[in-house]
Amino acid sequence: MKPGRSRFLLGVLCFGFAFLYVPIILMMVYSFNYSKLVPVWGGFSTRWYTTLLESEEVWAAAALSLKIALLNATFATLLGTLAGIALARIHRFRARTLFTGMISAPLVMPEVITGLSLLLLFITLNQQIGWPAQRGISTITIAHITFSMAYVAIIIQSRLAGTAQDLEEAALDLGAKPFRVLWDITLPQLTPGMAAGWLLAFTLSLDDLVIASFVSGPGATTLPMLIYSRIRLGLRPDINALATLIILTVTIGVLIAGWLMIRQQRANQQATH
């Protein structure tokens, strides 16, 4: 390759990455800005972090978000794992293709539609059976489980589709009853996938603004909802600090999930060779 051309490609690459990451880095830098005016640099300071940590509103929203994210991740992993196993392993399963398609529908469905339809569901349920009496943490959690279990199911299904059924058959052959096989052989194989799914579900829930806004009720404000409502009142430096913290949390989660999935892929390759 000519040096001129490679320099051009390198330039394009740098521009691309700059476009993606410079705003985030700038925001992180400005979260340490002393000045109250966001775009004006007034010297280094951590005062906005202090302000942030002193705000009860922020603490409440963060606690709610974390609670929802934890509940969501746990239930979505449970349900998604069961769905994934069913889709990958039950052979005489009528309309399997239909179910496989339906489980991945939430991934491509616009969030506004998911949110709106769930809201309508909750309202109808409230009218018909009186539950949920009030929208809040429970409705947000249910809504989050609905879409994040689809991600888990797909991770689990692809993990199982990648491994031959030999192991399970070998266990059956050695005298293990089907439930025992699930417990002894299938689930241990799935732990990395389940952990990755849990982390993914956790970050998805932590990030979500649209669906939560639809199905939330009075008094239940998640962290993204709080940020959004504050930004509408104007840019404030403490939001920069909050966003920086969220980005750090999510990045760590995504990195761990990615690492787990790579490890699982390697294990898959080893098992098949």
Partner: peptide
């Protein structure tokens, strides 16, 4: 009362 040796051996990796 039958056991099978699989072509892939199917040893439990864990």
């Amino acid at each position: 009362p039958v056991n099978m040796m699989f072509q892939s051996y199917a040893l439990f990796p864990h």
